[in-house]
Design a binder for these strands. Structure first.
Lengths: 149, 149
DNA sequence: TACGTTCTTTTGACATGTCACAGAGACCTG
DNA sequence: CAGGTCTCTGTGACATGTCAAAAGAACGTA
């Protein structure tokens, strides 16, 4: 039996602070976005789709790019299709595949929400960080996120 | 009509990196915890309850402390009570109130999971940060989390 | 070509969170 | 102290995520 090594005071404070950030920031951005008519997840799907020429992605590629499970994306896409934001069609090159693409309405919805969302990210995060802090945050975030799953 | 001010390259990279952290880190910690038999939320409830002498909290106070909605806590507590981790009783001082407290089984479950969770936090975060980075992270997180809702 | 295996999407059952509201108790004021 | 109002918890309807499995298509090989 080895003794559990607890957190020292510095670690404890940092971890508590980060936990607060981890819950508060996404919640706030999500609320702002909801006020603009989209959930965070809706926005994520729309903006990722729009990054590709023709606004077209296969489910599998899109799910990998977004780091979502395929099941999750399939469910979510079904709901978004019902609202007319995206459409799905069979992949002509692979009978198993499914191609998702933005509708015009979906693109307009994204365009309408984007400036407000950007503003929200600034007000709730970027405006409060110096250039140095921005750099450190990027370095830390990348290193941690890049660790193996 | 004012022009939307988009993110510059530094801001864009930092924000993307942070977004990856915001999704990946909680997901990983949650998976580790699940392997130990508790969801993240279960762990949060148990550990917060255990912080108070007698392991007793009123729903309202506990919800505020955890920054959860009362409804959410009520639902979750009902499920945890069904599993024998906590118990609820009417508040003798306020007929509307409800007092939650850990059961022995709940406390033992928490004790059993805590070392593994701590280890997970180290492996997936703390071990990869220098003391300086730890300090910057705390400063940034606190500042952002402390912004008004 | 025929077979078994692997891959891909969808679906259903279930866990969890949000929102609005019901019901009961506490509080305030004339 | 009576009536209206506020506060608190729990509940029901619904949105969203996970997991396991079904159904069909593609692939590899004898």
């Amino acid at each position: 039996m080895t003794e559990t090594r607890w957190l020292d005071a510095d670690e404890e404070r940092s971890w508590r602070a980060l936990r607060r950030l981890l819950t508060a920031l996404p919640a706030r951005l999500g609320r702002d976005l909801t006020a603009l008519g989209l959930s965070s997840t809706d926005y994520e799907v729309l903006s990722t789709l729009s990054e590709r020429d023709g606004w077209r992605w296969g489910l599998k590629d899109l799910a990998r790019k977004m780091e979502w499970s395929r099941s999750r994306l399939s469910h979510h896409a079904a709901r978004m299709e019902a609202r007319g934001l995206i459409e799905r069609e069979p992949d002509p090159d692979d009978g198993r595949g499914s191609i998702y693409h933005l509708t015009d309405a979906g693109f307009r919805t994204l365009e309408a929400a984007a400036p407000g969302h950007l503003d929200s990210v600034r007000r709730r995060l970027l405006d409060h960080l110096s250039r140095d802090e921005l750099a450190v945050l990027e370095r830390i975030s990348t290193r941690i996120a890049d660790l193996p799953d």
